[in-house]
Design a protein around this nucleic acid. Structure first.
Lengths: 205, 205, 205, 205
DNA sequence: GATGAATGAGTATTCATTCAT
DNA sequence: CATGAATGAATACTCATTCAT
């Protein structure tokens, strides 16, 4: 490897690292103050630079949110994909999806909060339509999983499936608002307790 | 009733009515767009008047949010108070509280959404400290209710009580985001299905 | 006098009285807060009515200031006219003019303050050009009085007459800012002390 | 001096210079139109920038007035301090103070006008309480100086000392309203003529 | 990469004014 | 005469964004 090439890679990597760093900072601030209430200056302050300097790295506030959200969603769907392709029973799939969701919260908490609180608002812009797509895909995944579970005799059939879907979706994602990485309970701990709570409720008795 | 008295009442009522009307409109807009992203102009547009005209009725955007939230909380706590004072078992109290919560959502949906999404943000201002008080009171109510349920042998003892509290709280309140008055399921219907889901989960088997 | 006529006169007088009352209130507020910083609402509050109600009596904020100022100036110039026409020596005329000025302050303090502080600002509007006319006339009166005093051997000739004019003008009028009707010193007392101060200074030794 | 150091000084000085420049412009406009009647836009126009751009340099319109006034007062009191500490007779002190006041007018004319015309109004805000303090200190300085002059046999004892104080104070400061730097009479010329006028009046004969 | 200074559109709020009742 | 409710233009201030250095 030539010094030149190492250099180029070094700076490219450094640049990517700086970007990621700034995005992490931005996500934190967006999550804690809300996207609209967050000024570019607040993000810059948190990153220790001046407001205008952010524009060397990103071309708008929106594009920061975009990159934060799409990175998170890509990774989350990749993980869901692996779970859904594993050929598990509906019940085991449900468990694995919930665990995976809490792992997402663990790794991308601010992004999840942003997704949770600002999707509706952001999705009015063309650029964020993929948020709606993701939500639709999410709903389909859950409804078909619930249907399969009923068919497999694993879940009760007497409850409204849309309601169950919303129940699980909301309960899981909203946890991002209070979850703390490194807190008393790990993401897996919480996932297990949550599963204990609602599996007993929705499974056929 | 003398004409004079009817008149006086008429105008006083009309004034209060206009206020309430405007607050309802404001709550709707705050809920659907988010407090920060809602401009005073948008509220005024929705009310069919000009931006500045709102200031004849209210001091500030903040004071609109304040009135919306405190009205809702007052009514909600009055309802909770009646339930808690009824001398029911822990299990029946839990059911009644959940039902009452969905009734709150039914009657004050936009206020609940506002409470849900903007409390953290608003509560940084002294004026909205009562939001934090309400949240603390809410947590105490639930934790002691869950403890009582365990003591009465109605609820499982092997789950983290703080987690259960958050689970129920989040699941109930977050429903305000999609609930529609006059939709397929009434508030009571939803409450019952929700109770079916998580009661089976947390009760002693 | 027929009852009808008495009535008409009564109401006309009452109306004029109310007008004067409101103008006195307005002048007070204009003087104490400054014309620009005074809102119509403040004037109305001070008068115990609502903002809009003032427009039954006056057609604008400007026209209130106009009426206050022109009433004051008319009366002041009438008084000055009587003094100047009395055929007194320059020195006695000066004394009489100063005394008359303090009497003006005594009777129209808020109007004098308004005149003093807002003339420059108001006079940019065509409608208030008479303020500039009055100032010019005032300057002419003083300069010719001072010249006459020098010619009569009553005043020192070694001082800049424009400076003396400004000195006297400023000293007299600015007193309106602290003068209080019914205070320790009457308008005449103050006039005499002021005269003692600057007559000794400007007279030929 | 290294280039780096010159650079650092250059930019720091440039920044301070820009601030001072903008403040001078603002003071000019405040003085000529009155603080309340001056819009931020007018100040910006006079500075050749847009309204909002002023907020890069200053927090608020109020803070501009604050900086203008406190800079002026600090310098004025420093000058007075030097005079009062010089061990002069009452009469000589009075002369020196008056001269120093006219020098203040010469150097800070717009600030003096602002101080003169808006102190009462601004001082209602906590932030400007130092204006009242300055006025109190000013009154004390003058009254004790006048008393000393009477004790030293330099000033007449038959005049009301409060009246003399106001007379001098008003006459001197109000001159800021018409004084022009570089005009026919210099600040010192005017000071001398003013002193000639009122010293002859108040000194023991 | 970052800064300092600016832009310009927008935001909450104020206020003189109007007018039906 | 006065009120209550509104208008619409203006005001102080904010903020995403730009760009020369």
């Amino acid at each position: 490897m030539s010094p030149r090439r190492r250099d180029a890679e070094g700076t490219a990597a450094a640049r990517a690292g700086r970007r990621a760093e700034l995005l992490a900072t931005a996500a934190e601030v967006f999550a804690s103050q809300g996207y609209s209430a967050t000024t570019v200056r607040k993000v810059a302050d948190a990153a220790g630079i001046l407001g205008g300097s952010l524009y060397y790295h990103f071309d708008s506030k929106e594009s920061m949110a975009d990159e934060i959200l799409s990175t998170f969603l890509d990774e989350m769907w990749a993980a869901y994909g692996r779970v859904l392709d594993a050929g598990l029973s509906a019940r085991d799939t449900l468990e694995a999806v919930v665990v995976e969701s809490f792992r997402s919260i663990d790794r991308h908490r601010p992004a999840v909060v942003l997704y949770q609180n600002e999707s509706k608002h952001l999705a009015t812009s063309e650029r964020f339509h993929y948020l709606l797509d993701s939500q639709r895909r999410f709903e389909e995944m859950w409804l078909s999983l619930l249907d399969r579970g009923v068919a497999e005799g694993a879940f009760r059939a007497d409850l409204d499936r849309t309601l169950i879907y919303r129940f699980i979706r909301d309960t899981v994602w909203v946890a991002a608002n209070w979850y703390q990485h490194g807190g008393r309970l790990s993401a897996e701990d919480i996932a297990k307790q949550y599963l204990a709570m609602f599996l007993e409720g929705i499974k056929a008795s």
